[in-house]
């Protein structure tokens, strides 16, 4: 075999190396350093955290390449960056920067109302959001090498993250227990590629790594998502919108490692200062729900 660069195995493999870890949103090189020192496995380079995107309004786009490059220079862990749903040119630009992972994200304003990016065409791996199994498998079918349940970004309210994780795991359980003749109709009903439905059933899990995102604000939230069965967590506004980001970030990292150990969780949850204020998802207007974006 000749040497093959950027295969699906290496794309999926980087996500496997991030398992059991925390990926933090950062908006400056200083934040990135704080995140790395807190034990983050990767950082998501952004101009504004989701809570600010929410309050500022307007169109949210890919970040300035200058900012992303500065962040890449100051940390040794992988750097991720977001592009708008369907905006394949933003993705080409991010790939040209040699960013380690691209998040085709509903947190930014979608660029295409019908189609996501054909992610197979890129050497840089993609992570995409999902609310259910069908959405996860459609994204994997398009080439995503990592999935995150969406939750509701920038709220600090974990309810949607829980709903989406429970939905995905519940559907996988259902899939594993149904007679084989029902698979095709199941695939049709959830709008997912048949081959990926079969593969998920054989594996008993998604074929790629699955993190939780959207609303995680405390070590307890992170451990909750881990106990529900995700492979790791993204924390957006939850760290840098809190009173003491370094301490809270570190506590969330530790909570993901020791998610099954309540004594350690109790110890690391002490004296973290103020959590982000947050917004209840139930108070959001329909057009404020970012998780609805994605086709």
């Amino acid at each position: 075999m000749e040497t093959q660069v950027s295969t699906f195995t290496t794309k999926k493999g980087l996500a496997q190396m991030l398992k059991g870890g925390v990926i933090m949103d950062v908006v400056t090189p200083d934040h990135a350093k704080i995140a790395e020192d807190a034990g983050a496995v990767a950082v998501m380079a952004l101009e504004r955290v989701p809570a600010d995107i929410r309050s500022d309004g307007g169109v949210a786009r890919m970040s300035d390449p200058e900012l992303i490059m500065e962040i890449m220079k100051c940390v040794s862990i992988p750097v991720m960056a977001k592009v708008r749903i369907g905006h394949f040119v933003e993705a080409q630009i991010i790939e040209a920067l040699e960013v380690d992972y691209i998040d085709e994200s509903e947190v930014l304003t979608p660029a295409d109302e019908a189609y996501h990016i054909n992610k197979h065409q890129f050497k840089t791996p993609f992570v995409c959001g999902c609310r259910n199994l069908g959405e996860a498998l459609r994204r994997i079918g398009e080439g995503a090498a990592m999935i995150r349940t969406k939750g509701e970004a920038g709220t600090g309210d974990v309810i949607e993250a829980v709903r989406h994780a429970r939905t995905v795991f519940g559907e996988i359980k259902q899939l594993c227990n149904m007679p084989e003749e029902e698979l095709m109709t199941f695939a049709k009903n959830i709008g997912a590629p048949y081959e990926l439905v079969k593969e998920t059933r054989e594996l008993g899990r998604l074929p790629v790594v699955n993190f939780a995102a959207g609303g995680i604000a405390t070590p307890a939230d992170a451990a909750l998502m881990m106990q529900l069965g995700v492979d790791g967590v993204f924390v957006g506004s939850g760290v840098f919108k809190a009173g003491n980001p370094a301490k809270r970030g570190e506590a969330i990292v530790k909570a993901v490692t020791h998610y099954k150990n309540p004594e350690i969780l109790a110890e690391i949850s002490r004296n973290l200062g103020e959590a982000m204020v947050g917004r209840n998802v139930s108070d959001l207007a329909d057009n404020e729900r970012l998780s609805e974006r994605g086709w």
């Binding site: 290496t10 040699e98 380690d100 050497k123």
Partner: peptide
């Protein structure tokens, strides 16, 4: 560390 470059240079052989 990261002797071959960033993720885009990850490979199988």
């Amino acid at each position: 560390r990261n002797a071959f470059g960033r993720q885009i240079a990850s490979f199988e052989t």
